[in-house]
Design a protein around this nucleic acid. Sequence first.
DNA 1: CGCGGATCGTTGGGGAACGAACGATACGGC
DNA 2: GCCGTATCGTTCGTTCCCCAACGATCCGCG
Lengths: 197, 197
Amino acid sequence: MTTRRLGSAEEDQLTRAERDIGARLGERPFDFRAMAATSNICRAATSIRNHMEQRVLAGYGLSWSAFTVMWVLWIWGEQETGQVAAETGTTKGTLTGVLKTLEGRRLVLRSAHPDDGRRVLVRLSPRGLAVIEEVFPLFNAQETFAASALEPGEQEQLAHLLRKLNARLDAPNGDGVDTGLGAPYVRGRTTMGPRAV
Amino acid sequence: MTTRRLGSAEEDQLTRAERDIGARLGERPFDFRAMAATSNICRAATSIRNHMEQRVLAGYGLSWSAFTVMWVLWIWGEQETGQVAAETGTTKGTLTGVLKTLEGRRLVLRSAHPDDGRRVLVRLSPRGLAVIEEVFPLFNAQETFAASALEPGEQEQLAHLLRKLNARLDAPNGDGVDTGLGAPYVRGRTTMGPRAV
DNA sequence: CGCGGATCGTTGGGGAACGAACGATACGGC
DNA sequence: GCCGTATCGTTCGTTCCCCAACGATCCGCG
């Protein structure tokens, strides 16, 4: 093994992919520390989400987005749809569709804003409340399973490091219009911008 | 506003969302440690991916999946499409579409397997090689930016913790058919072969 | 050989998500 | 009071992705 740029102390812990990458790119001046951190974040998030969708949410016919919306309404109560969109990390247009689905299944209720005719308030229906109160314990149990690879102190340290990283990414360029309350289980975008090349 | 700068002391603390969650669910016997770890992973991954798509990939008209495929071909060279699908974490069907797009843009080349008529080999075209060699340094520079919220030692520790967590999630039930080489920037769900549920 | 089962890549349908454009509503300058 | 501007939620068109079939190909066994 001829990799030397990567951390030599804990090479035993590197994944096979990371070793191959070091062998392929090790001579180039890349930031392998940052690469290891960010790529493992992406990988972990994908694994967690797949795990949850398959083990918990599929049994209730809930998409990740739908679960996230219900979670936000559960924690913070009735809200305007714009706030929910910001907190769940989706666009307003997407949220309209998600809410339509949830409303069709009688899990959420829409109501007009008392003072502002443009706004719409959303809240969990009694049935939606029952669902999230049943689903989330299962969800949390799977979180426990995933985190059980780490000691409690390690779990806290992981969260601590990620919070610092998130603080940097959430507000990179000014303007205090941050993503709202910062709901944890955010959902990401998928599209790209203009076509080039 | 840029004037609203949180002191580093506060950044150690929980996010506003986490405090609200504690206020809302604190009385219930949930695993808040695991919740903090997993939810911050999801949040960080979303932020990273959005950041990369907007700052780097959009300028080249590359989707995250397309970038991941090109990255795999860059590191591991010519491969069968099935291997690429497994390593990038997409289904075979999705990969067909991605490869069709990339082939239409002359970034990858398909060729028949010499021995097995069912299989198809994929590799980067010279133009695709030029693109990934131009894009990845920019990508890595943004990784550096994201990770700059942490000290080098913290970056390594973060990667270390995530590797342990990934190891647990990647092979929970040993049907042995792991996800291949374990490409870092995985996307979507890994092709789940048999019906597990 | 020849046939049945297994494996591979492709296809088509449906769901999710984004961005841009649209009507409806609220607010402020005149 | 009125009209231009801003904001809010919805709709529309596109892109992306998963999944369940499907045809093509390979392999083992009689």
